[in-house]
Nucleic acid binder design. Structure first.
Lengths: 114, 114
DNA sequence: ACCGTTCATCGACGTTTATCAATGAAAGGA
DNA sequence: TCCTTTCATTGATAAACGTCGATGAACGGT
């Protein structure tokens, strides 16, 4: 495991990945490898509007610093976007990232429409 | 995070998950949250035949116990199948698991054809 | 100019993880 | 019956991770 960064989400089942692709893929999965982060992603994936940290915190049984910690991981992985409005921070799903991810488990024999 | 086990792979963007679904989803991502395991999965997803531990080990820069450790995690997550042949163990992708996973990032507005 | 709210970061802590060398179990020859 | 090969498990260790309370920065209202 030596190579340098690659972009995420080459399909796993449609040809061999090199080390750097495997690494990039693992980074994204690491961001999702926690039930609290899955909940956050799910919350934001199902909300039309961006959501502030306070509301995310209210919806989880975690302290605010811990929520911020998880949010940071999700942003770093490219899954969320962060937007400041005055004292507030609003977070939202990155739709493009989601679209990329939606290709990752595709198998060779499969196609997709609209 | 209190609830009991659920089965994996409810779509993240098509409605809210309860705690146990989020937990189940995170478990699968945990199994994928390591570059070596992504490589193993990729190797097996692209090989027609099951592959023995020795050949998997040869293809990676890891000791055999460490490879077995990773294989165990992937089997526990339901992503791989294990099959014994004499002294050998052969591993292969679980096609159904892969199919389930392929739905996890689907968005509401999307359909799929073969 | 003050105060309250919102949020990120820091420091500390306990837990989980990845790794290897050593060991052990089971099968297949010679 | 012994030796070799294959693989899983164990024990040890270092690194990464999730969590919280405390702190501090920035904004907005009074």
């Amino acid at each position: 495991m030596t190579s340098l960064p690659a972009r995420c989400c080459a399909p796993i089942a449609a040809g061999r990945l090199d080390d750097s692709q495997a690494q990039a893929t693992a980074e994204v999965f690491k961001a999702l490898a926690d039930a609290h982060r899955v909940k956050i992603l799910n919350l934001l994936a199902n909300s039309r509007e961006p959501v502030c940290v306070c509301d995310i915190t209210d919806s989880m049984e975690l302290s605010q610093p811990t929520v911020s910690f998880h949010l940071k991981k999700l942003v770093s992985a490219g899954l969320l976007n962060r937007e400041e409005r005055g004292t507030w921070s609003y977070y939202s799903i990155d739709g493009d990232a989601l679209k990329d991810l939606d290709r990752i488990f595709q198998t060779k024999e499969r196609t997709r429409t609209r």
